[in-house]
Amino acid sequence: MEELSAAGEPAIATHALTKRYRGGQLAVDRLDLVVPRGSVFGFLGPNGSGKTTTIRMLMGLIEPTSGTARVLGEEMPRAGRRVLPRVGALIEGPALYGFLTGRDNLVRFDAADPTADPRTRKARVDAALDRVGLVAAAGKKARAYSLGMKQRLGLAAALLQPRELLVLDEPTNGLDPQGMREIRTLVRGLASEGTTVFLSSHLLDEIEQVCTHVAVMAQGRLLTQGTVAELASSARGRLAVTTPDTAEAVRVLKEHGVNDLTVDDDRVTGELPVVARELADLNAALVRAGVRVRSFGTERASLEDAFVALTGEGFDVAG
């Protein structure tokens, strides 16, 4: 029965989770995060915003200063022995034994899991290597691996068992475009099997492509969380007009209350008016003023717009 009630709980739920490092740095500040089961959850934030610190607390590597973290329905770090075998993790990039081959690295990490059956070890290691496309390089010493190969091997270690939750801290760091695409496909495949994926990333379009949910951190605080669609729609889209008569177009649009106008070659963009009905009137006004309109339309707000709107200019590191 205990297992059942746990299955109904979110994959990750934190309550007022706080971490102050020994140096006094407040890295995570009263974080309330809820990661639904079955979601692909993007964890966004500028450098130093506390993403890795949060993940370390979730994995029981560091003790929270205050607050609680529940993973797969049980409290961390206390229930680590029961929870962690069901979780695969890649934290702050891969770390490998350079003097061991890729395959032996996986054997070593698998041997550290007391719930891993030694009889199936070889088969599981081979399957994990296959899954990340490293079979051909499995016999090479890990110190001779490229960054992308190390990253793949780290992922393979997270996939040694069927997992209920995957925690991936910047999983595509160092990968080539082909590798990035493979990871995205892998994440989608795992998600369709029912694995919850929690991934932090700096690549907004990547989050937009694979994630169903997203949370945004800045300076240790949670700014927002919700579905990707909700967040993107919270940032308003923009009006875009293509015309050779840009100066005239800007004048007319300004008259009609369009703000934040910018001109880029023959493209004029501006903040979309709040009422949609005005769109057709705007176009008519442009034409009446003799502006030769080549195209007229709206651009959907991207996650990046939403992110910049939330964090200010976004990617500056806060002290």
Binding site: V87, Y97, G98, P114
Partner: peptide, 13 residues
């Protein structure tokens, strides 16, 4: 080398 964190999340205990 950082391998300690991966042993601990394995979880080695």
């Amino acid at each position: 080398s950082g391998t300690l964190r991966y042993l601990l999340v394995a979880p080695a205990g």
